[in-house]
Design a protein around this nucleic acid. Sequence first.
DNA 1: CAGTATCCCAAGCGATACTG
DNA 2: CAGTATCGCTTGGGATACTG
Lengths: 161, 161
Amino acid sequence: MTDSASPSRRDEAATPIERCGMARAAELLGDRWTLLIVREALYGVTRFEAIRADLDIPRTVLSKRLRHLVDVGVLKKRSYREPGQRAREQYVLTTMGVELALPMIALMHWGEKHILRGEAGSAIVERGSDAPLHAGLVTNDGRPVGLANATFRPMTPKAAA
Amino acid sequence: MTDSASPSRRDEAATPIERCGMARAAELLGDRWTLLIVREALYGVTRFEAIRADLDIPRTVLSKRLRHLVDVGVLKKRSYREPGQRAREQYVLTTMGVELALPMIALMHWGEKHILRGEAGSAIVERGSDAPLHAGLVTNDGRPVGLANATFRPMTPKAAA
DNA sequence: CAGTATCCCAAGCGATACTG
DNA sequence: CAGTATCGCTTGGGATACTG
């Protein structure tokens, strides 16, 4: 205790931010790129160069973020080899990572509803009133995963290729 | 077009990050404090000084974040007056803000499951196996809101007072 | 293709001090 | 109580260039 009389000092017995799951999650994922990288992984973009090209993220930043995601256990690095090809690397979601789909879809839905709608030229707006706004996942070949009305798609044609 | 032949340049027709609801949400909320401030609002801590003391956030930062949250429409500022008192200010959630509860609870649940569990001394761990880990909201006087097993609580005793 | 090494810049954070 | 003004510092982002 450094100050004796200040009424606004924190009680030392209080549960601090470190015990809040949301605060901790935000700490892990809360920067400009991390969530986007997880999103790539969720629809199957797992190679370094593919992610880089898709998001248009600097190599050095992607490198750092990937290492971080592996460190915290959201992604794991994996070598694979297609017949007749040389070895390649990929970053795949762990169980921990896959389970981020729920919060991310919820967040995406929120963003679509409250940010994208009302913006001029928004794809959401153009979809018209007969297309409900529920979020969902699609695989790279377009099949829906989980929920209906998939809007959780690659941002660029490149990503789907 | 500044460069003619680079194969890694983005296709201009591609759907960019600006069209992804999640990316946009992350852009709006993705810093060290914003989500925590929304969390405070969700359980009813709405006055400047209360939030500041609860989160232990610098005044200048809180000021900036609150203005930002008002600007984007998550909070709205409101003056109120209790009988015999002078006017006070508070920041209350808009509909847009209230609807952040779902993504936030999902994220909190994820954080509790994958980050807090396994940490020494975690309240989650100490809770024991008979207490399931579903997330939920409580009002300031402890009544559950929405889901069962509320863990979305004030971090400090002060916040509940 | 899959990265790493360097270096620079901008933004965010936070301490201090002040106003109504 | 509810903020704003200033300023220094740290962190992260990004350009460039290089390696296996």
